[in-house]
Design a protein around this nucleic acid. Structure first.
Length: 1144
RNA sequence: GGGCUUGUAGCUCAGGUGGUUAGAGCGCUACACUGAUAAUGUAGAGGUCCGUGGUUCGAGUCCACGCAGGCCCA
């Protein structure tokens, strides 16, 4: 037996078996090693963090990665794939804190940094086993034996060298960002500290709508056409009046509608014009006051503010309008005080204009920075720029009126607050602004505001020191380089990523944590800095410092300890060890390490270099594997890994880091909701893989939606894929194996039947196959695995199984081969089918690697040795070691494909006629007539006539070129052509054309054009401007579809009737054979009771046919059956009494 | 609030450059076929192509404005 036959095959079992085969034979390694010397295709693995368990979405993401690596391997590339682990960062630290029941404050107190980091190091690899297990089970081929690990010294050293490069280029600097800061605790707060329960509280604050006086009103086009303006002011609302002395801009929304309102200052009663968002007018003005009594206001009790809208405009019209500084204590060093555009402005409350103080708001900082607006800063005693509020939350001395006052009343002690004379600073500011005519409304307002979880006092948004990478300096380059990257989908590259690059801000690298890559910068108090770029440099600086004699004995001792460890190779570049390293500046001052860690995204973005410990080692490997040809991660990585890879490569290597990138969508549950372990709708990947096997899971995920679309994950879909695709493919293989084994068929390349002498159907399926190879390759080349998979699936189910096999069954059954051996025709059939299946196994192997392997091996294991000897393409043990099939263009016959498509349509139409007239397929009919309007159609129909005949059980098929009016012809306007020609008259012309029948059309065919004379002007229709089709054949039963018409003669002659009965008879006997448990190959003899004349004559007339079909050696008609009767069956109109038995 | 994205049959999805009967698979119903048989074929039911405007002789497709979902920001 050359081909294994399977019953009750389980897909998970295939997975397990193949996995074992791969492991035992190290197929993955071989797939890389056998490509040694070939061009390389580089893939970068985005490192997962192993401190969480993998989910089903990881199966999706990793399938994409795997598919293209496998595809490129088949194409002959060497695809090295180094796995990696992302090991640093906040999630790990938080998990450890949770496990130990501690908070950040305990680190360094109740637990040493050393212990803590050790704990992080262990925790981060906690689920490594699960990850490795998943990787294996889903068939993701990646090198897990030598992964890169971001916490290793070598990895960190590479990062340091990159940071040093940035530093040397002046791209690494210390600046500030606006962060939540607790003056009471004297510390910054991380975002997760701010997310702790109870930090957001409802408080009542004094809020002010301040009035910013516009300068040189008449110089702005937006106001130029409004006459009689006396005092134009822009209204901006703030819940933090203490930030008003730091105001340096006003921000409006570009598309928000604003109005200019004429009214009075409600505190000074002076006439004024104010600008605010149209939607918010109702907040400040009553309906009653609209277009009210301006003249009478002064004399009134001033309770009712009259107002009127003078003009309406968009926010963008206000851009650039300058105003007078509201509280001029400190002057900025650059031009400020103008209106800018920001994307964060809303009209939910306030005035639709945001008071902007770059030192006290993150949005403010960003938008000011983007518009070149300076912050209001003062210089401290060291000449360093500091904000106008100090770190304890008090105004600096330059804010003379409020110097040393706390900006928030909560910062004062309880006693001080209890004093009846006590006024909050905000209140003092409000009073002053009212007096100066700069306040439009002052009120207490209740809102939620974040509080420090330690001190319970309000948090300030405050500028804090941070280290930055000056990505903005390289923005243009990064934008340019991005244009060379092939993004899938394109919109992520141009839109999401492109826009992000366009609005780039500097990369804040600092993290005030413990477990991560330490920033390799040491500073002395006099401001001297050194950035360390290598361990050797660290060593040199250590030695130099110790030799200087400027260190304390403790410092020198600590340095010595580290030096000794460096000598042993037993050192650690993490905290706290590097914190206890001291250098000496040129002035002889001690230099301390800047305490920050760097952003973990830098870790992963540096993997192209650090995974090879570049530039310290592996120059050659690095050079040939940089940049990556392909990467893939979730779309949520756009501003994460995709960006950090791109930024580092662009800034330091003047290169892209990757040439092609597939950004994948999310995996949602079947209802389109996000999966979450908490909600319990998360799918366990191990369970799914265990139940359905890896192939169906992968195939479903890939073919159901394109990778960048979100996938609604539905288990039913996997079952469908399993049944529909894998089940059909399995059946097809089993069919092949069954007969191939019976016939003792085996493939010998040398004696294969030449393609040109194979049957129409063989050549057709081979043509289809080669078209498929071409198209699947194109889709994979385009990084579209979904379309590739769908193409393969359609080929297998629609073409190979439902057409080729179904129509060819007889060739395989043909029982006469027993003595004659394999006929040429039968051999060709096997060769064709086997070739199709082997090719399918290759084409599907990137997506369904296990099943493809199983199929390939089942089809070729039996001929492996011979193939090796013959050095044929089937010599490889694994489908993953083969080479991507080459398209045999000479085998592609599009004309034949077209003809076969017609055969399929014609068959379908005949079936539908039979159906409508209750004529079962077993009843032969005499003729199908097909109007063929072109020579080509007629030829194609003749080419596939025999296929149609056997498929629909008709004796004759005729394609006729009609010119004598046998058909009813109709014409359909070609709108595309005629639309251009007639424009508005199109509809009228179309109506006319639809009314045409044979007369008009014959004239058109004769003259090449037809004039519609009853239209004005006369319309001339050319023959190729309409599509002519036949609608009806008088006297025949007709069906049409897509311009193809089929006419069927349904006259059942006596002869046909008898044949139909004979076929029915065969059918019953076949069933009996099966019921009686006969073997397919058994020969039988039949005795039939002659109880009906019609039945008898049908049997007599078709005796030979019947005998051959049911493999009967003898068919006797007997007057009466005696003894045991093993068949008594009701046929349509007879009672069949029959005896059959096996002939020994 | 901003950027990107999705919206077509009960479900999952196709529908280059606008062209007049909007398709497939699954599911449902009926019938047929029966040596691949837990397979297969045929037919039927099932659509305000998210909405409203606009451009056009003609819009699922192009434009504008909305609505709803998603992701990332804020």
């Amino acid at each position: 037996m050359n081909y294994k036959e399977y019953k009750n095959l389980s897909y998970p079992q295939i997975g397990d078996d193949i996995l074992k085969f791969w492991k035992d034979n190290r197929i993955f390694e071989a797939s890389v090693d056998t490509r040694e010397g070939s061009p390389s295709f580089t893939f970068y693995e985005g490192p997962p963090s192993a401190n969480g368990t993998p989910g089903i979405h990881h199966v999706m993401a990793r399938s994409i990665k795997d598919i293209f690596c496998r595809y490129k391997t088949l194409q002959g590339f060497q695809v090295k794939r180094k796995g990696g682990w992302d090991t640093h960062g906040l999630p790990v630290e938080l998990q450890v804190e949770k496990e130990l029941g501690i908070t950040k404050d305990d680190i360094g107190k109740t637990i040493s940094v050393e212990e803590y980091n050790e704990r992080c190091r262990q925790t981060v690899m906690k689920f490594t086993d699960q990850w490795n297990d998943l990787t294996e089970k889903m068939g993701y081929w990646v090198d897990l034996e030598n992964p890169y690990v971001t916490y290793e010294n070598n990895y960190i050293e590479s990062l340091w060298s990159l940071l040093k490069k940035l530093y040397d280029k002046g791209l690494l600097y210390k600046g500030y960002t606006i962060q939540p800061y607790s003056p009471a605790a004297g510390t910054g707060l991380s975002s997760h500290e701010l997310n702790m329960p109870g930090t957001y509280k409802d408080v009542k604050d004094t809020t002010i709508v301040a009035m910013f006086k516009v300068k040189t009103v008449e110089s702005y086009p937006v106001f130029a056409d409004v006459t009689g303006l006396v005092d134009l002011r822009i209204l901006a609302w703030t819940t933090t009046p203490w930030t008003l002395p730091a105001n340096s801009a006003l921000t409006v929304g570009a598309n928000i509608t604003y109005v200019l309102v004429k009214t009075f200052n409600p505190y000074t009663y002076e006439p004024v014009e104010v600008v605010l968002a149209k939607d918010l007018v109702g907040k400040y003005f009553t309906e009653k006051g609209e277009d009210g009594d301006f003249e009478g206001y002064a004399a009134s009790d001033k309770k009712l503010l009259p107002w009127t809208v003078l003009k309406e405009f968009k926010g963008k019209d206000l851009e650039g309008v300058e105003y007078e500084q509201l509280m001029p204590y400190v002057q900025p060093d650059k031009p400020a005080f103008r209106v800018i555009i920001g994307d964060f402005v809303t009209t939910e409350d306030g005035t639709g204009v945001v008071h902007t103080s770059p030192t006290f708001g993150a949005d403010d900082f960003r938008v000011a920075h983007a518009n070149g607006i300076p912050a209001i800063m003062v210089k401290d005693e060291n000449g360093k720029e500091v904000p106008i509020v100090d770190r304890r939350g008090r105004f600096v001395k330059e804010i003379t009126d409020y110097a040393d006052r706390f900006v928030k009343p909560e910062y004062y002690s309880a006693e001080e607050q209890a004093d009846p004379e006590f006024r909050a600073t905000d209140v003092l500011i409000a009073i002053r602004l009212k007096e100066e005519g700069k306040a439009f409304k002052v009120e207490k307002y209740e809102h939620t505001y974040p509080h420090c979880w330690r001190t319970d006092k309000p948090v300030l948004y405050y500028p804090l020191d941070s280290w930055f990478i000056k990505t903005t300096a390289m923005k243009d380059k990064l934008v340019e380089l991005n244009k060379t990257i092939n993004w899938k989908p394109e919109s992520t590259g141009t839109g999401r990523f492109g826009n992000w690059l366009e609005n780039l801000v500097d990369w804040n690298l600092s993290r005030s944590r413990y477990w991560g890559t330490p920033l390799p910068i040491w500073r002395s108090e006099d401001g001297e800095e050194v950035c360390v770029g290598a361990i050797s440099e660290l060593k040199r600086l250590l030695e130099k410092a110790n030799a200087s004699g400027k260190l304390s004995s403790e410092q020198a001792e600590s340095n010595k300890t580290y030096l000794a460890k460096l000598g042993d190779g037993d050192f650690d570049l993490h905290r706290p060890y590097v914190d206890n390293i001291y250098f000496v500046s040129s002035q002889g001052n001690v230099m301390f390490r800047e305490p920050d860690l760097i952003d973990v995204w830098f870790d992963s973005g540096a993997m192209p270099y650090a995974q090879w410990h570049y530039p310290f080692e592996n120059h050659e490997i690095f050079n040939e594997s940089y940049p990556a040809d392909f990467i893939s991660e979730g779309v949520d990585q756009t501003r994460g890994w995709f960006f950090t890879l791109h930024a580092i490569a662009g800034m330091l290597f003047d290169s892209v880091a990757f040439k092609n990138v597939v950004s994948t969508g999310l995996v949602l549950d079947k209802n389109g909701n996000k999966m979450s372990k908490r909600l319990g709708n998360a799918v366990d990947p191990f369970e799914t893989l265990g139940k359905y096997g890896p192939d169906a899971t992968r195939w479903y995920m890939i073919t159901n939606a394109e990778p960048w679309d979100n996938l609604k994950f539905n288990i039913d879909g996997i079952q469908e894929v399993q049944r529909k695709f894998f089940g059909t493919l399995l059946n097809t293989y089993n069919f092949f194996a069954l007969y191939a084994n019976l016939d003792g068929y085996n493939f010998h390349e040398a004696t294969a039947v030449p393609v040109e002498s194979r049957t129409e159907l063989d050549r057709w399926i081979l043509s289809k196959l080669n078209t498929l190879i071409k198209e699947v390759g194109e889709q994979f080349d385009d990084y579209n695995p979904t379309k590739a998979g769908r193409l393969v699936q359609d080929f297998v189910t629609d073409q190979l199984s439902n057409w080729y096999i179904r129509l060819n069954r007889r060739r395989f059954w043909n029982p006469s081969s027993e003595n004659a051996g394999l006929t040429e025709d039968k051999k060709a059939a096997y060769e064709t089918l086997q070739h199709c299946l082997v090719t399918v196994s290759q084409l599907m192997s990137p997506i369904a690697p296990f099943f493809a392997e199983w199929l390939y091996k089942s089809l070729t294991d039996g001929i492996r040795e011979e193939s090796i000897k013959a050095n044929s393409h089937l010599k490889y043990d694994s489908v993953h070691l083969t080479h991507w099939p080459v398209v045999e263009y000479s085998d592609i016959d599009l004309d034949l494909e077209e003809a076969m498509e017609m055969a399929q349509s014609i068959s379908s139409l005949v079936h539908s006629i039979r159906k409508k007239h209750k004529l079962k397929v077993r009843q032969p009919l005499s003729k199908v007539l097909i109007p063929a309007l072109t020579e080509k159609t007629s030829r194609q129909i003749h080419q596939v006539a025999s296929i149609i005949l056997s498929e629909v059980n008709v004796k004759d098929v005729d394609a006729i070129n009609d010119n004598d009016g046998f058909f009813h012809k109709r014409a359909k306007p070609n709108f595309k052509v005629l639309g251009k020609k007639f424009g508005k008259d199109m509809q009228a012309v179309a109506e006319k054309i639809k009314l045409w029948d044979n007369n008009e059309i014959m004239q058109l065919e004769k003259d090449g054009q037809y004039l519609i004379t009853d239209l004005q002007p006369v319309a001339a229709i050319l023959i190729d401007e309409v599509e002519i089709y036949t609608e009806d054949v008088p006297g025949w039963l007709v069906a049409s579809e897509n311009g193809l018409t089929v006419a069927l003669d349904i006259t059942v002659t006596d002869e046909l009737r008898l044949e139909g009965i004979a076929r029915d008879f065969v059918n019953r006997v076949q069933n009996l054979r099966k019921d009686s448990g006969f073997e397919v190959t058994d020969k039988i003899e039949i005795a039939l009771e002659n109880n009906n004349e019609l039945l008898a004559s049908a049997v007599i007339a078709n005796r030979e046919y019947i005998c051959q079909e049911v493999q009967a050696m003898d068919l006797r008609l007997v007057p009466e059956l005696i003894g045991e009767i093993n068949g008594e069956i009701e046929m349509d109109e007879f009672l069949l009494r029959i005896n059959i038995g096996v002939v020994s």
